[in-house]
Simulated assay, not measured.
Amino acid sequence: MPDTYLNFQELNLHEQEGRDYQIKTSDNWHSVLIIAPHGGNIEPYTSEIAQWIAGDDFAWYAFEGIKDAGVRKLHITSHNFDEPSLLKGLRRAQIVLTIHGLKNSIDEFIMIGGLDLTLGNELRIALQRSSFQVKESEQKYSGVRATNICNRGCTGKGVQLEISFALRKRIVQDTECRIRFIDTIKSMIKTWEQSTKVAKC
């Protein structure tokens, strides 16, 4: 299903902040930025997951659809997502992780995309070791365009997680699963941040 709006400026002409959508961010930007570009009612639970991963350690951003009817109109595909405050935060982000939602409500799995293939592979290994199923990313979820929001940090590459609805729901409802999932990702990002692999902006 094609997007209604081509970019944020077009969306903002027809939708009202505070009524149709809202933007939430952490208090400060950081070299690690966790993003939910389709949060709220657009792709449920992605905002919560992004904030849990960030915690008090990293920066986070969520664009949330808050209206009930027609919320799908608020979806701007990742390679067109250009909300100004997020672009500003991305200028100092060395590690970017975006959280997305797949519709599958039966199978619990993750697809990993983005241009940071090395970090993406490390996350895949860590998640599999923590008993999460990681499927090969389909082309439309590969996140390899340079303009994809996950690749617009100062290094020009990032990671995109596509999480099935079934797994997102379990992460929210099952405390053990949530802790295992969040800790796995957070631990890997912290290790990566401290390593020499991260380019300085």
Score class of each variant (00 low, 15 high):
residue 94 Q to D: 07
residue 163 I to K: 00
residue 121 N to S: 12
residue 177 C to H: 14
residue 199 A to C: 07
residue 124 R to W: 00
residue 113 G to R: 08
residue 198 V to A: 02
residue 84 P to G: 12
residue 39 G to N: 05
residue 164 S to G: 04
residue 171 I to C: 09
residue 38 H to V: 01
residue 44 P to E: 11
residue 173 Q to Y: 11
residue 35 I to R: 06
residue 103 K to S: 03
residue 41 N to T: 02
residue 156 G to M: 03
residue 80 N to W: 04
residue 25 T to D: 01
residue 50 A to I: 12
residue 32 V to G: 01
residue 11 L to H: 05
residue 24 K to P: 02
residue 4 T to R: 11
residue 81 F to D: 03
residue 130 S to G: 12
residue 199 A to S: 09
residue 157 K to P: 04
residue 51 Q to L: 04
residue 186 K to W: 11
residue 78 S to R: 02
residue 8 F to S: 02
residue 43 E to M: 07
residue 161 L to G: 11
residue 137 S to C: 14
residue 194 Q to S: 08
residue 43 E to R: 06
residue 119 L to G: 12
residue 146 A to M: 10
residue 156 G to L: 00
residue 153 G to R: 01
residue 88 K to Y: 10
residue 36 A to N: 05
residue 170 R to C: 11
residue 90 L to F: 07
residue 66 I to Y: 15
residue 65 G to R: 09
residue 150 C to M: 12
residue 27 D to G: 10
residue 127 L to P: 13
residue 33 L to Y: 01
residue 81 F to S: 03
residue 125 I to W: 09
residue 40 G to Q: 05
residue 21 Y to V: 11
residue 129 R to A: 09
residue 145 R to L: 08
residue 153 G to W: 09
residue 78 S to L: 04
residue 165 F to S: 14
residue 159 V to E: 08
residue 158 G to T: 04
residue 83 E to F: 01
residue 109 F to K: 08
residue 111 M to L: 14
residue 7 N to P: 06
residue 22 Q to P: 06
residue 191 T to A: 12
residue 164 S to F: 07
residue 192 W to V: 08
residue 30 H to F: 02
residue 12 N to W: 08
residue 4 T to Q: 05
residue 6 L to S: 06
residue 198 V to L: 06
residue 38 H to K: 00
residue 84 P to S: 06
residue 128 Q to W: 08
residue 50 A to K: 14
residue 76 I to H: 09
residue 137 S to R: 01
residue 93 A to E: 03
residue 123 L to F: 05
residue 83 E to C: 05
residue 94 Q to H: 08
residue 47 S to R: 04
residue 28 N to Y: 05
residue 23 I to W: 05
residue 34 I to L: 11
residue 200 K to Q: 10
residue 147 T to G: 02
residue 61 Y to F: 15
residue 62 A to S: 11
residue 174 D to I: 06
residue 35 I to N: 00
residue 80 N to S: 01
residue 37 P to A: 04
residue 110 I to R: 02
residue 73 K to N: 15
residue 135 K to Q: 07
residue 33 L to I: 01
residue 38 H to R: 00
residue 62 A to P: 07
residue 191 T to P: 07
residue 37 P to Q: 02
residue 142 S to P: 04
residue 129 R to T: 12
residue 169 K to W: 09
residue 194 Q to Y: 10
residue 11 L to W: 07
residue 166 A to F: 06
residue 41 N to Y: 14
residue 174 D to P: 13
residue 164 S to T: 13
residue 25 T to I: 07
residue 167 L to Y: 04
residue 80 N to L: 00
residue 50 A to M: 11
residue 64 E to C: 03
residue 196 T to M: 04
residue 93 A to R: 04
residue 112 I to T: 12
residue 185 I to A: 11
residue 134 V to H: 11
residue 40 G to D: 03
residue 164 S to H: 01
residue 152 R to S: 09
residue 112 I to M: 06
residue 189 I to Q: 15
residue 128 Q to E: 08
residue 85 S to Y: 01
residue 112 I to G: 13
residue 176 E to N: 14
residue 121 N to I: 07
residue 165 F to D: 07
residue 83 E to V: 02
residue 179 I to R: 15
residue 189 I to A: 13
residue 165 F to G: 05
residue 154 C to E: 02
residue 189 I to K: 12
residue 7 N to K: 02
